[in-house]
Amino acid sequence: MKQEPITIEDFKEFFSKIVRIRTIEQAIAERYHAQEMKCPMHLSIGQEGPAVAISMQLNASDKMLSTHRSHAHYLAKGGNLTMMISEFFGRETGCSGGMGGSMHLIDKSCGFEGATAIVGNTIPIAAGVALSQKLSKSKNITVVCFGEGATEEGVFSETLNIASVKNLPLIFFVENNSYSVYSPLAPRQSINRHITKISEAHGIKSLKGNGNNIEEALAISLEATTYVREKRKPCLIELETYRYLEHCGPNNDDHIGYRTKKEIDFWKSYDVIANAKKAIKELGVSPDSLEKLIQENTKEEIDNAFREATLAPFPKIERSISYEYA
């Protein structure tokens, strides 16, 4: 958890973490074709920036909840890689015992309280987690990650309201990648609608920036977490970013035409890793050797995780029944 101004070390940490996550996600995409990970897979490639920026401002006792696309959040918060991969393989040793798959990740040891698959579902649950922090006079805070699509659900506004009424230590963390599956913003949100104005209308401090821009993402995350920790009030962050692959699955789907070439080219030229490299270089550090080191270390991590996952036993239906009631 960093509360002091952003340093060169923060830049290096940010860079290392986004490279690690992208390396992991790319490995999953490559190995998905073997059809051993039999579950819907929503990869975070392209969207690593926001997850890492906010997580760098959190400690293990702070809580995070997320959505169907949660790999980057889980990993950035400190979730166990082997247990995540084992979950994709449907094994008993998976982080959800093989019951949840990619869309239901959890690692309570690092404060990752759960990700669920229905859009907007964890937003009010995070308010309850934040209320528990308030009632128990904890100094910790809660972050709930979701996409701009979830802001179209009624429960988003309902939760903004109660978070403001009860002064909850909660960060609404919106990653705006402009698409809900294949549906663009135009039919879904009025051009005159601004997410940060919705939250501001509820009396909630709101910050907006580009999640692929290292300086912006880190500065906004620091400002928001400092505010929520000190004021014990909610805050909303909206970070723009872009998903590189298809909504669900390991492939590129640029050829099917729901996103323009111009748009895709813009975002690829504004890649978070490329941006971070540039920023680090300007500070006098060579990013290439660091990138190579991280990639090598991560590859070893990944190989271990996949090996352990494939060796682990499958859960039995009898065990599944025992999970019905506590």
Binding site: P124, A127, G128, S132, L135, V155, T159, N161, I162, V165
Partner: peptide
């Protein structure tokens, strides 16, 4: 510990779940 709520049944239920998974 005892309070009135907004007319937001879905959020109130979610909030209750969040409390329940956090020791309440």
């Amino acid at each position: 510990r005892v309070f009135d709520t907004p007319i937001s049944e879905n959020a109130m239920t979610g909030m209750a779940i969040g409390l329940a998974i956090s020791g309440y």
